[in-house]
Design a protein around this nucleic acid. Sequence first.
DNA 1: CTTATATTTGCCAATATTTGACAAGTCAAT
DNA 2: ATTGACTTGTCAAATATTGGCAAATATAAG
Lengths: 100, 100
Amino acid sequence: MNSQFGEKIRTLREKQHLYLRQVAPLLEMDTAQLSKIEKGLRQLKREQIPILAEILKASSDELMTLWLADQIYEVVKDEKMANQAMQVAEKKINLKQRKK
Amino acid sequence: MNSQFGEKIRTLREKQHLYLRQVAPLLEMDTAQLSKIEKGLRQLKREQIPILAEILKASSDELMTLWLADQIYEVVKDEKMANQAMQVAEKKINLKQRKK
DNA sequence: CTTATATTTGCCAATATTTGACAAGTCAAT
DNA sequence: ATTGACTTGTCAAATATTGGCAAATATAAG
């Protein structure tokens, strides 16, 4: 499981019976790039997520969640202190949210 | 609270009564850079964390944890889906660790 | 086996981001 | 006014990421 986001959008695309060559131009990229994104070798730009969600008739929030999770995972994947770091980060996020 | 790592190493440095100008050369940088790192405006290189831990007589694991937490926070700080993303990422990390 | 279509891979130039280095600045103590 | 510690701004250099293309692979059909 290399990229949860990539796997998800591939599944969604196949469910819609769409080809890379159909979806890629809507995101202004070529099929090679989209292929790499689905395989987790490249990142979709954050601001393109809502666009892709619409194309794939999916929840933008869900795709965003997976996309972010991939970014986080990339930071900590080989780290011994991964879990502790996540806990510390979570605390800080919760603090921030309470302020709003 | 902009950088937990930065705040921590500043506190540690002050506890040891060390000046930026004393610590910076040990990390092969100038005081301006170290100052920015302590204020969270720049990142210390990951591989320098153990070196700095030794200089400051601190736990390398603890510093690494804070450093990673800062990286994670940077990814999700303004994101509505931050918490969900963290949960998804955690699950994936736990899966990975179980495999070892 | 040849063709056609979909996807993948490799490469490298273009673009974007981060860093290193220095100069000039603030601030506090004297 | 001078000194010492730290901070800030700038900008070129170093790194990292992306875009775009061509070639490779895979699968199915004739």
